[in-house]
Design a protein around this nucleic acid. Structure first.
Lengths: 341, 341
DNA sequence: CCGGTTGCCCAAAGCGCTTTGGATGACCGT
DNA sequence: ACGGTCATCCAAAGCGCTTTGGGCAACCGG
């Protein structure tokens, strides 16, 4: 059932039916009701491609999710972020077009998205410190919102980020208050912008207490269980091992924990662990004390908000860039305790 | 730069340029080269909407990922499945349109996808034992491939599945061989088709040794860390607690482990755990003995293959339904050992 | 020399929608 | 009775592509 058929069935022109459905004033209320009723009865919905061709807007947003070429893995936070963004799109009648791409030919994908006019805007995931995508998208005049920030960018652009620096500052401070002085940082890859900011927060908190950062207890790796395990294991084997760990995510924190226990130490007693927690649904236990003390911030909510910002920007591309900084909360769990001497 | 501009710049008609780019024979080799060269120079790519409108095919595939209304969470396996499918789409020039939807109005989404003609086919995720979507999609004449199966379906349909029954049969058998007799099943929700098949495998293996299944050590819950923990904790508190656990996924297995250790028992020595492992990138440690003994099967690969099957089906919708059954391998880890008496 | 092929190219129709720019009556006051 | 307003409807153009159905030379053999 296409517009032509529907209008024929109603004995009206396509123009009138279209205007009736799209809420134009110059169609009588009686006809409008008749049209809407018939549309529902025949389950008519306009062809999205034809509609967007006529309208000029695709009513779709692109998400390019990077595939780490190192481990060929896709970061589990994307699922939750996308679920959040998807809620916003569903509410406002937008589609989400996903492209999974190895990070070595992102540029091609963005250019393609722009020139094929498949989407009205894109969300930039996993930005690096110096990410060429900001420049590229500005050049392409494609509206975009970065999930995170790009510290080394020359252009102004829209972003939504968690205050990673403050979160890791507070977490470090918390461990220092518990008496810990050998605090390890098991960070994400430090080409990633968020990882740099977290390290800055960590180092600033140490500096405030006159502690010099020790590179031997600072690692920067992919955020996998295995990487967390290996980093912690080698640090624990040092002559002066850390008594606390600050970890980039729940997943590597599981690895850190494994290394700690393998050494016969008890988490929360002999060794403290704080990690960043993106509130992934399958890990949080709503009704009990969490296992890990964590800086917590909902990725799902971030997805919702980022999508809203982007749709806003699409509606008014000439307006000013939008920014939003979310704060993480420090949630106490069972993985931290005072330094035991 | 649209087709009109490009053809004007070349002094050719749109027809000729289009045919040159699409490899039609009736254009001279000289002109074709000239056109292709110009297209590259101007970075011309046809408008996808106009193209698909003219061609009739959207060159896009829909993925509707369900959001559990109970925990509002999205299953982490989707990320990997989609990464796999995305590889196939990228290779063959298809787009992926994602819709995240709470399971109470899936039907609307599928109807919409069909009548707006946004996609040429869909992948059905997380099928239930009696899933109305099979019937719906057949009625809508929308090509689809189910990731999993729908045991109670009347229609024939295309699917790709893991041999869940055999996987859990073998895992149970393995635990029996180790001497275990009290083997618990921490299953996924048994409205899900895969969960039913896994239970069938588990019960069949027990029956082969003359063991009656005990409902007190069989649970069926959402696959979260917390659900695994709670199930295991209450089972371990029984007068005759299980000495081994068969768990639906790595995530709840982490919860089971937590419950085991909380009780002062050692995993792999006092209590054995076998779980199903979907080979999610961030958990597998390629270069060492895995923590958990598991029935392993790559979701990523499943995504790749399912997408291939679907594109095949889209190319020839009148052909027979496609089926594919993948076998899981049993991988030995550190979480299992012989029964200690 | 001439009808028939062949190679190359193009104008125009069509995909299904929205929007522009009227057209047609009904109704108004004078 | 009549010009003017208003409400309601519609034909046709346009979005940017592909495809149909020729057109026009150049070349062929008879």
């Amino acid at each position: 059932m296409r517009l032509k058929d529907l209008s024929a069935a109603l004995g009206l022109s396509q123009t009138t039916v279209s205007r009736a459905l799209n809420g134009y004033p110059d169609v009588s209320e009686a006809t409008r009701r008749r049209v809407i009723e018939a549309a529902r009865r025949f389950d008519y919905r306009p062809d999205a491609r034809a509609r967007s061709l006529a309208l000029g807007a695709a009513r779709a947003i692109g998400h390019v999710i990077p595939l780490s070429t190192r481990h060929e893995m896709v970061n589990p936070v994307f699922a939750d972020f996308i679920a959040g963004a998807g809620e916003t799109y569903a509410r406002l009648g937008y589609d989400m077009v996903l492209t999974v791409v190895r990070d070595d030919d992102e540029a091609r994908v963005y250019r393609e998205l722009a020139s094929t006019r498949r989407v009205d805007g894109v969300i930039v995931h996993a930005p690096r410190v110096a990410d060429p995508r900001v420049r590229l998208l500005c050049d392409l005049k494609m509206p975009f919102v970065v999930h995170g920030r790009v510290s080394a960018a020359d252009e102004t652009y829209s972003w939504l980020d968690v205050n990673n620096r403050r979160a890791f500052f507070r977490a470090t401070d918390f461990l220092l208050d518990l008496g810990h002085r050998r605090i390890a940082l098991v960070n994400g890859l430090e080409i990633m912008d968020f990882a740099i900011r977290r390290r800055a927060g960590y180092e600033a908190a140490l500096a405030d207490r006159g502690i010099a950062p020790d590179p031997r207890i600072m690692s920067s790796e992919e955020m996998t269980e295995g990487a967390g395990y290996r980093a912690a294991r080698s640090m624990l084997a040092l002559p002066d091992p850390p008594t606390a760990f600050l970890v980039s995510s729940l997943i590597p924190a599981l690895g850190v924990r494994r290394a700690v226990e393998e050494r016969g130490l008890a988490m929360g007693r002999d060794v403290s662990i704080v990690c960043h927690d993106d509130e992934l649904g399958y890990f949080t236990t709503p009704d009990s004390v969490p296992v890990f003390t964590a800086t917590r911030s909902s990725v799902r909510e971030a997805g919702r908000l980022a999508a809203e910002m982007l749709l806003d920007l699409v509606a008014d591309p000439s307006g000013p860039p939008r920014h939003r900084l979310l704060e993480a909360e420090l949630v106490l769990g069972q993985s931290t305790g005072p330094l035991r001497s």
